[in-house]
Nucleic acid binder design. Structure first.
Length: 573
DNA sequence: GCCGTTTTCGGCCCGACTGTTTTCAGTCG
């Protein structure tokens, strides 16, 4: 059984234990175990084989045994046992805002509600009113929550949420009552998808800020409206939460509301062990505030290096900050040029010339053009003749654009048998080749892994494109043994793409650290299908940061001259 | 469930808001 499946089952157990009303610390242990296992990816199986699971902090004897059983047999007796206690569709009820495990359990045990549909029916029949703790208002809210759940999946792309959040922040910043503003929550941590928008502002007039917030254009509904905290729903269905604090409290509150929950929990425990108390209003020794004007000072007061928001997932960052071994994360300015840009020759929206001008205007020192290869008929892939014509066009354009180095490339389909889409003599004519899977997703893991490994081992390949094929919120990755693929990439000096398109963000940040540890270089590519798409690189940098990558770990931080040498060396290898 | 430079047992973070509760539980982050 694969790591993400094991993680799902551990999360499932945590949810079931919550429904049962079990020990909250035990529940937390299962949740943390799930997160650790998901981050292990294909390393999980060898760790189980070698009996080394317990070396990961947070996995003890009991979890180790259960994970081993899952990996070896694909089942877990304990999980099966728990599952028999509740109907499977009951989990859907937990996704309704305002419904937690306690209320869901009561709905099930007293009304026999087992699914969203049954709950909706029970609401329509006013049956919730007979239950203690439920009234008119909660019944109406639940009905609304069910409608919302039907319309959206409850999660949104980072890029969409960021755009909405920045508009809200700008409107708040314009208020004379507001001094500082910031993004917070999962958006600030740069999660690839988010459930809501968290905003923080400092002000001496919180009530006025709240009034302004709930009345902003774009607000479709006010969910909560308190003295220092309000929640609204935007027309898009996205929920936005705003918290107001004093300016003195701002850094503490910013840390608090950035999270993650898991990171905060550990940090507050750390504070407590040092005789301190930590909350959104400050860091205290007894009643005395330890003054901090930035988050970095708060970390310092706890004996930690400054932890960038992207890393705050309780996945090793606190230990690294204690040991003064946090990575110097890559920044947008480190990106010297980009690969993976489409033009109107295949399925891009803008011409070659427009793409080149746009890349130069963005300050990139080089641009790698890679339209689709000939088998990609849906995308108007290039025949050999059209490849040659495009090369002539690029040569001509290079004359007119000395400020940017143009590299001739192709995004070659990886055919079903793992071969590339042109004969070798044509492939040799490119400066670089991105090899990508675009079809036949239904293979077994063994077949797909062999297919990708074979493609990587072709000497013409420079970069493996969108390595897992995931489409956020719509399609899971195809089955693939990523560890074998990464090892093959290392062996054949192939960079692995971190596809920066906000719908992909593939390679997933959870696997970036492992790729780096295996000596694999990642290439942050916009996969641009328009001039605007070239800027998507920033989303890729966000994911790279979240994946602990530094400048040295990323392919396209090389200067244009270095890159020219790198590509030539690869060709003559 | 996990964990230990106090500990192998007894801890394990903290506060705002809502709704329905007449003093607080549940949810959320």
């Amino acid at each position: 059984m694969k790591a993400h499946e094991v993680g799902t089952i551990l999360s499932d157990i945590a949810a079931l234990l919550e429904l049962k009303g079990d020990n909250p610390f035990k529940i937390r242990a299962y949740e943390q175990g799930a997160r650790i296992v998901e981050g292990l990816g294909d390393q999980l199986e060898p760790l189980v084989r070698e009996g080394r699971l317990h070396e990961h902090k947070g996995i003890g004897a009991a979890l180790s045994e259960k994970i081993t059983e899952l990996v070896r047999t694909g089942r877990l007796a304990y999980h099966d046992e728990l599952r028999r206690e509740f109907p499977p569709a009951i989990f859907d009820l937990l996704k309704i805002p305002g419904l937690g495990p306690k209320k869901v359990r009561r709905l099930y045990q007293t009304l026999g509600v087992r699914s969203l549909g049954e709950l909706e029916y029970a609401c329509v029949e006013n049956r919730l009113l007979t239950l203690d703790g439920f009234g008119e208002k909660s019944q109406a809210n639940i009905l609304e929550g069910i409608q919302l759940l039907k319309r959206h999946q409850g999660r949104f792309l980072f890029s969409d949420a960021l755009e909405a959040a920045e508009a809200l922040l700008a409107a708040l910043q314009a208020s004379p009552d507001v001094s500082r503003t910031s993004l917070a929550g999962s958006l600030r941590r740069r999660m690839e998808t988010v459930k809501d928008i968290d905003l923080l502002v400092s002000s001496d007039s919180p009530a006025a800020v709240m009034e302004r917030f709930v009345a902003l254009p774009g607000v479709a509904e006010v969910i909560a409206h308190g003295g220092t905290k309000s929640s609204v729903r935007l027309g898009s269905g996205l929920q936005a939460d705003l918290r107001v604090v004093s300016d003195r409290e701002f850094p503490y509150a910013l840390h608090h509301f950035t999270g993650s929950k898991e990171h905060n929990t550990i940090l507050r425990g750390l504070a407590k062990s040092r005789g301190l108390k930590m909350n959104e209003y400050g860091l205290f020794r007894g009643d005395e505030l330890i003054p901090c004007s930035t988050e970095a000072e708060i970390f310092a007061a706890l004996g930690l290096d400054d932890i960038p928001p992207e890393l705050r997932e309780n996945l090793g960052e606190i230990e690294a900050a204690q040991a003064r071994r946090l990575p110097d994360l890559i920044a947008e300015r480190d990106i010297q040029g980009v690969f993976h840009a489409h033009t109107t020759e295949s399925d891009g929206r803008h011409s070659l010339e427009a793409m080149v001008s746009a890349a130069a205007a963005l300050g990139y020192r080089y641009l790698g053009i890679s339209d689709h290869s000939r088998s990609a008929r849906y995308a108007n892939g290039l025949s050999i003749e059209r490849v040659r014509a495009q090369h002539r066009a690029i040569d001509a354009l290079q004359q007119r654009h000395p400020e940017i180095v143009l590299f001739k490339g192709i995004e070659s389909d990886i055919l079903a048998d793992g071969s590339l889409d042109y004969p070798d003599d044509v492939l040799d004519g490119f400066d670089f080749v991105i090899a990508s899977v675009h079809s036949r997703f239904g293979m077994t893991e063994e077949e797909m892994t062999a297919r990708v490994v074979k493609a990587i081992s072709h000497p013409a390949v420079t970069i493996l494109g969108h390595p897992t094929g995931q489409l956020l919120l719509s399609r899971d990755s195809y089955p693939l043994n990523l560890t074998r693929v990464l090892d093959a990439a290392k062996m054949h000096h192939v960079a692995v793409e971190l596809n920066a398109n906000p719908h992909r963000l593939d390679l997933d940040w959870r696997f970036c650290k492992d790729a780096r540890d295996r000596g694999v270089t990642l290439s942050i590519n916009p996969d641009a299908h328009s001039t605007e798409g070239l800027s998507d690189t920033r989303y890729g940098v966000g994911i790279a940061r979240k994946g602990w990558l530094t400048r040295a770990d990323v392919f396209n931080t090389q200067s244009a001259d270095q890159m020219r040498r790198t590509l030539t060396a690869k060709q003559t290898r």
